[in-house]
Design a protein around this nucleic acid. Structure first.
Lengths: 138, 138
DNA sequence: ATGAGGCTTCCAGCGGCTGGAAGGTCAACC
DNA sequence: GGTTGACCTTCCAGCCGCTGGAAGCCTCAT
């Protein structure tokens, strides 16, 4: 199976697959002509990686997950810990974005959005209103 | 005012300020010794940039905002549009993260997290459960 | 004169790809 | 046999927004 079909099967761009080989996430063998030859288990791994990446795991976490996946004597605890770390990261990011959203939403609401120059958004960026951004909690 | 004090005053690392000069967001004059000399309006701009960046605007959006800020004949509509685009981006990101959070949360809850190898997280990564991820809506 | 702490420039690297150039290979068709 | 055209290969550069570090100059206090 060449890289084109592998890409199709795994749902990843060929470029990404080459990159994954470069960083040694996968090690497909080569045909005599130098073409990568993907075995079913390579495809399987690629699909695994695609899904782990889609869930937001970093490449290094994916490497670890793949290692655990292939280790029959793993403890599910180790997998769960990785996932929990990632979950906490997601939660932190959501909280951060929500705070931004709140501030920015207020500013947008306060802005007339007409052809006059006066603009609460710019005013806030130039010197944030003392109570407008959660007082002292940043 | 040298870069150290400017960094202190604006709440940005000196490295970042040099970078902002390189990409021409600011143009501080130079002393005879080659040191950057920051005028009060430079500091003001840097603080503006720091706040705009903290709200998640991209560098190019910050450039546009700064331009509008300095343009006395601006229309607040233009500022508002920029902010709304960014707001939509934030909302999209939040929605995306929430979807991830939901999926990952379920998997974490389903995982025993003990010393046995069986793990729903890995199982899902290897072949997602057909109904587990929003059916067909991806 | 020396040393500490600023400042300068330049280059490299982070993550995770992505685009593009230059060239080899293969299968099909005339 | 020749020629497309689609595939494959490698390598280098770039995205964003910094950040770290090296090498060297400037300034001020001792």
């Amino acid at each position: 199976m060449n890289i084109g079909q592998a890409a199709e099967a795994a749902g990843l761009p060929a470029k990404t697959i080459r990159y994954y080989e470069e960083i040694e996430l996968i090690k497909p063998r080569r045909d005599d002509n130098g073409y990568r030859a993907f075995a079913p288990e390579d495809i399987h791994k690629l699909a695994f990686l695609a899904r782990a990446r889609a869930l937001g795991f970093t490449i290094e976490e994916c490497r670890a997950l793949l290692g655990l996946y292939e280790d029959e004597s793993r403890a599910s605890e180790d997998v769960k810990k990785l996932a929990q770390v990632h979950l906490a990261r997601i939660d932190a990011k959501i909280a951060e974005l929500r705070a931004l959203r709140a501030t920015l939403g207020e500013l947008v609401d306060a802005c007339a959005g007409d052809n006059r120059p006066d603009c609460p958004i710019l005013n806030d960026l130039a010197a944030p209103a003392p109570g407008a951004r959660g007082a002292k909690a940043r």
